Computed example of a mutant assay.
Amino acid sequence: MSAWTREAVEALGPTTNVPTVAAIFGVNPETVYAAIRRNEWTATRVLHLGRTIKLPTLDVIRLLYAPEAEVSAPVTAVPAPCHHAENMQVTDSKPHSQCGCSPAHSVPFQPLRRVT
């Protein structure tokens, strides 16, 4: 078992795969896959990208180095939850708490046309 340093984990990039996270935690990868399947994996967020499972390395760093969990460079593991340009059905009247957008930036909902 090799020792994983903080620098080595940061060098993995924004996300990594299950076998790598299992190696960092010193467990069998099948144990991690089974916990994810049973929705019992709480150590990190789980990103399902088709059939691929990715885990944010920032979550691993925060778990292992809790008091000093700030990463030297900002790492964005997942895109922001608000995508007004792609989602034409955003009509909230209040700003979103995480992205700070407001209805002035959103496009009004266009009802579907009935085909007769």
Rank of each mutant, 00 (worst) to 15 (best):
M1R: 04
S2D: 08
S2F: 00
S2P: 09
A3M: 13
T5W: 11
E7K: 14
A8P: 01
L12V: 02
G13E: 08
G13P: 09
P14I: 00
P14E: 02
T15L: 01
T16F: 00
V18W: 10
P19V: 14
T20K: 07
V21S: 11
A22R: 08
A22T: 08
A23Y: 00
A23E: 14
G26S: 12
V27R: 13
V27G: 10
N28E: 11
T31N: 09
A34M: 07
A35M: 08
I36D: 04
I36K: 02
R37V: 01
R37A: 07
R37K: 05
R37M: 03
R38L: 04
R38D: 06
R38Q: 13
R38S: 12
N39Y: 03
N39I: 00
W41C: 01
T42L: 04
A43S: 12
T44K: 05
T44P: 07
T44N: 11
R45K: 15
R45Y: 06
V46L: 06
V46W: 09
L47K: 11
H48I: 04
G50Y: 08
R51G: 15
K54C: 02
K54R: 15
L55Q: 07
P56E: 05
L58S: 12
L58P: 00
D59W: 02
V60Y: 10
I61C: 05
L63I: 00
L64H: 05
L64P: 03
Y65D: 12
Y65C: 02
A66W: 04
A66S: 10
A66Y: 04
P67D: 14
E68F: 05
E68M: 06
E68R: 14
E68G: 04
A69I: 01
A69D: 10
E70T: 10
E70N: 04
V71D: 08
V71Y: 01
S72C: 00
S72N: 10
A73F: 04
A73C: 00
V75S: 01
A77Q: 09
V78H: 03
V78W: 00
P79E: 15
A80K: 11
C82A: 05
C82T: 02
H83C: 08
A85W: 05
E86T: 07
N87T: 08
M88Y: 08
V90F: 05
D92R: 15
S93T: 14
H96S: 14
S97C: 04
S97E: 13
Q98K: 13
C101Y: 06
A104D: 14
H105R: 12
P111F: 08
P111G: 07
L112Q: 14
L112A: 14
R113D: 14
V115I: 15
